[in-house]
Design a protein around this nucleic acid. Structure first.
Lengths: 149, 149
DNA sequence: GTTATTTTAATTGTGCACAATTAAATAGTA
DNA sequence: TACTATTTAATTGTGCACAATTAAAATAAC
């Protein structure tokens, strides 16, 4: 590729990531409207449905988010009754995030979302698995490079 | 894939996109520190270095952003002297975004950024082109599905 | 056993991102 | 021509996202 082409928006892999992520997130909106949650909140629930309670730190580790993002978001989710926040007994520094009954019940309502979303993607399973694999390698690489900053 | 696995964070393609995008964006931060701009502002400059002036609408079309995001961002960029904003003579609805001398000069300083960033990615050229192609197909698909909402 | 260090969340401040609304300019139409 | 519809930015309000700082609790060092 010629040097000046590398400066073109359409040739930049990170711009494709950036734009695609946002457009895909928009596709979630109507699917999440029923639950009245945002996409990042949906990710929190996915993490908790898999394993709960989780400390803010553990949750952040899974979602690649820090307390500056999570704390206010979790407070909003607590306010609408999806989760509960409480200090750990063994380690008072930790705030544990658990699911309420409403939060647990939401899993059933959300069960169809992954399939509904995939219907919007014109890609076969191999292609998706390939993409998934590439992205995870990229993510790990970026996380390693980034932690030294 | 089993049904419950689809609910796992690590199997969701959109979560990989979401997390990878943010981690990659963090890698840009030190590269953009010299220019004192953010990643979205860098994207605006890339668009303008390719072609300027552009209306807010055209810029939004290239970056997949609307005026709600662009207007305040462009005002910040105008304030620090990278761009200029002015109404089009032919169509007073349009606000044109042009580069100042400082904005044009920044292109030279930024010329090394694409290569510096690629050094952080442990992927060969084929792999990157393949990823780029897949993402662009996904982006177009999502944009089409999304515009009917 | 006190002191220093580390870990954990919360807080503060800035900057996107986007839905919904508003207002002005233009284009289209009877 | 007047009247409607469309296009374009700006505005308003909410919710991430993240760097940097702060404060409390736990651990390590001595």
């Amino acid at each position: 590729m010629m040097a000046e082409d590398k400066m073109k928006l359409e040739n930049q892999i990170c711009f494709s990531l950036y734009a695609t992520t946002r457009e895909m997130t928009k596709l979630y909106r109507p699917l999440l409207a029923d639950l009245d949650i945002t996409y990042p909140q949906y990710l929190v629930l996915l993490a908790l449905w898999d394993s709960s309670p989780l400390s803010v730190k553990e949750l952040g580790g899974r979602l690649y988010l820090d307390s500056g993002t999570l704390t206010p978001m979790l407070k909003r989710m607590e306010k609408v009754g999806l989760i509960e926040r409480y200090r750990s007994r063994e380690d008072e520094r930790k705030v544990l995030i658990g699911l309420t009954k409403e939060g647990r019940d939401a899993e059933h309502k959300a069960a169809c979302i992954p399939d509904l979303l995939l219907e919007n993607i014109d890609m076969n399973e191999d292609e998706i698995l390939q993409l998934q694999h590439t992205l995870q390698r990229m993510l790990e690489g970026a996380r390693e490079k980034g932690e030294g900053l």
